[in-house]
Design a protein around this nucleic acid. Structure first.
Lengths: 128, 128
DNA sequence: TAAAACTGATTACATTCGTAAACCAAGCCC
DNA sequence: GGGCTTGGTTTACGAATGTAATCAGTTTTA
């Protein structure tokens, strides 16, 4: 799994494809297409275009297996999510996490259970 | 301040302009340009284009003052940030906030002070 | 009052993105 | 063995984005 190279920028539509391949790496285009059925109404051509672009960007790799291509992520999900999060927080919240979290807390979009879970997470972080 | 209408989608570059106008609403193009000097090397033409697009999108309004236009946001910052955050979290984290926060906690990108602040925020949310 | 300076409007142009259709090669079916 | 099916490659095309240059109107200035 690559970790040194610059993490490519992944577009909205491309995220869906990446998520499928993190879940089941080594899928070919029809398989990815099938696994997106419930969320997106994309034609298989659309999925192939996205796969091709992700390969070009260096986000995906593939091996040929006979005439089919088996795609797999070149970066793990954590790495990509972290990069996207940092970029988002810095763009919208000037890099400050607290105001971001405050947005959710104040708008009561969090259940009591979620709040507990988040507090537990923070506790764990503090112990390290 | 508008709050009923659909919140427009604001692009990366446009966020910078919005942030200036939330800070000092009623600025004209040259003023916005000046306030961006430290962060961006945009020409004033670029800033004017962004202002125009934001007006078109319904994110900004303006009044004429003689020959100059004074721009002001039509949505408050909280509203826009919340919309952007929801969209981001649902795109990248399938709508679940905990994994997002875990990303930051695990990567030790948070100082002890920040963790304390976040916990305090969560406590406040819980009291409501 | 004619030129200079300031401000906004219109037009431009290359990239990226969303969404494919068209085209082509390799197996498979009869 | 010549289509039909399946899988991938190339090309397309409009909207959004980043980044302006040019044009035009107004006010100030020499």
């Amino acid at each position: 799994m690559n970790s040194d190279e610059a993490i490519p920028t992944i577009s909205d539509a491309e995220w869906e494809v990446m998520k499928v391949l993190w879940d089941t790496p080594g899928s070919n285009a029809p398989e990815v297409h099938a696994r997106l059925q419930d969320r997106r109404t994309w034609k298989i051509r659309t999925v192939q275009t996205l796969l091709g672009r992700l390969v070009q960007k260096g986000a995906l790799g593939f091996e040929k297996n006979g005439r089919e291509y088996l795609y797999h992520p070149l970066f793990d999900a954590e790495t990509c999510r972290r990069a996207a999060s940092n970029s988002f927080i810095s763009r919208v919240f000037d890099g400050r996490l607290a105001p971001f979290l405050a947005t959710f807390v104040e708008s009561t979009e969090l259940s009591a259970e979620e709040i507990d879970e988040l507090k537990r997470l923070l506790d764990e972080g503090q112990e390290k």
